[in-house]
Amino acid sequence: MNAMGSYLKKHTEALVKSVGVEKACELTGKSKATLGRYYSDHDEHADRFMPIDTVAKLEETSAYPHVTSALAELGGITLSIDRHRPNRAKSSGVNSDVLALSQRFAMLIAEYQQSIEDGVISVSETKLLLKEAVALQRVLLDMKLHLEEGKN
Rank of each mutant, 00 (worst) to 15 (best):
L130A: 09
G93S: 09
E60F: 15
R85K: 12
Y38S: 10
G93H: 00
G93M: 07
A70Q: 11
K131D: 03
D118I: 01
V67I: 14
I116Y: 02
S122N: 06
K10M: 13
L141S: 03
L130I: 10
T12V: 03
H42C: 10
L58D: 02
S18W: 02
T61P: 04
L71N: 12
I109F: 06
T34A: 14
E111T: 15
G5E: 02
G29Y: 11
L141D: 14
I52K: 13
V55I: 15
L58E: 02
L15Q: 05
D47P: 00
M143N: 10
S102I: 15
A14Q: 04
V134R: 12
S31K: 11
Y112C: 08
K32A: 12
N87Q: 13
L130S: 13
E148R: 09
L140N: 08
G20K: 08
R104K: 12
L136D: 00
K23V: 07
K127Y: 11
V120G: 00
D82Q: 15
Y39S: 00
E73C: 02
S62W: 01
L101N: 00
G76T: 11
M107D: 06
K17G: 00
E22H: 08
K10G: 05
T126D: 04
V123A: 14
R88H: 09
L128E: 15
H11W: 11
H146F: 10
A70V: 09
K90S: 07
A89K: 14
A106R: 04
D142R: 03
G20Q: 07
S40M: 09
S18E: 08
N95Y: 11
A89I: 10
A63D: 06
H11M: 03
E117F: 00
D43E: 15
L79M: 08
S91A: 15
L58W: 02
S80E: 12
E117V: 06
Y7I: 01
N152D: 06
K131N: 14
S115C: 12
V139D: 10
S115E: 11
M50A: 06
S69W: 06
E22T: 08
M1C: 10
H11D: 00
A110G: 14
A106G: 12
A89C: 00
V94F: 07
Y64N: 00
T126F: 04
S122T: 15
L27T: 00
K57I: 09
R138I: 00
L99W: 07
K9F: 13
L27R: 08
E73P: 04
S122D: 10
S31P: 03
A24N: 11
D97H: 07
E73D: 13
V19I: 06
E149H: 11
A70Y: 06
L58N: 06
Y112D: 00
T78R: 15
E22S: 09
K144D: 11
Q137E: 14
I116P: 02
A3D: 13
L99P: 02
Q137D: 12
E111K: 10
E59Q: 13
D47G: 14
S40Y: 02
G75M: 07
V139E: 05
A14G: 04
T54M: 10
A72W: 02
N95W: 07
T34M: 08
R88V: 01
